[in-house]
Simulated scan of single mutants.
Amino acid sequence: MLLTLRALFREAGDVLAVADPCFVGIVGAARLLDIPVVAVHEGDNGLDIDDLSARCREAHAAGRRVRACYVAPDFSNPGGVRMPLDLRRRLLDLAAREDLLLIEDNAYGFTAPRTTLCPA
């Protein structure tokens, strides 16, 4: 995580978005590197895409940008939620619009049935 964050965050105005609640490891790594972190609400279906969009707008208004978003789409830590496919697509669309990088932590994705993630 440290190497990834160090490589991605080069500009002084870059901000890292994380789910709230979030895995403490990514927040700790960001703090060690003095990377500002902005919390994004996580609901029953995972990351709140509308809230992430609002955080991006707020960052732009303050002369900053959300450079990347740390997301755990399957069994997030500590929330344990799974993002449905439509929400994952909305996240990708937002990332493309905002020129936002996604740092995916999918440590438990192998435990999810393929049929629920990739319907035929």
Rank of each mutant, 00 (worst) to 15 (best):
N77C: 02
D48R: 08
A17T: 03
A61K: 03
A30K: 05
T116Y: 13
L52E: 09
G79C: 02
L92W: 12
D86H: 14
G109D: 04
L91Y: 07
A112W: 00
F110N: 07
R114G: 07
L47T: 01
A107V: 12
L33I: 05
E11V: 01
I49C: 07
L52D: 07
G63V: 06
V18E: 00
R89Q: 14
L3Y: 05
M83H: 10
M1H: 12
A68L: 04
D48L: 04
E58L: 15
T115D: 13
N45S: 09
G46R: 04
P84N: 11
L16A: 08
C69W: 03
I49T: 06
R55Y: 05
V18R: 05
V38R: 10
A12P: 09
R57C: 07
P119A: 11
M1E: 04
G109M: 09
L33A: 02
Y70C: 07
Y70P: 05
V24E: 14
F9K: 11
D20P: 00
D74R: 14
C56I: 11
L101W: 09
R97T: 03
S76C: 12
E11I: 04
E98M: 03
H41E: 12
G109Q: 08
F110T: 10
R55Q: 13
G63C: 11
R90Y: 06
D48W: 02
E98C: 07
D48V: 06
R82P: 00
H60S: 14
E58Q: 15
R65P: 06
S53K: 15
R82T: 15
D105Y: 13
F75D: 10
A39D: 08
S53W: 03
A12Y: 03
I26L: 04
I103D: 02
T116S: 14
C56T: 03
H60I: 14
P36I: 06
R114A: 14
A95F: 00
V27Q: 12
L8Y: 05
T4L: 13
A120V: 04
R67D: 00
N45P: 01
A68V: 08
A54Q: 12
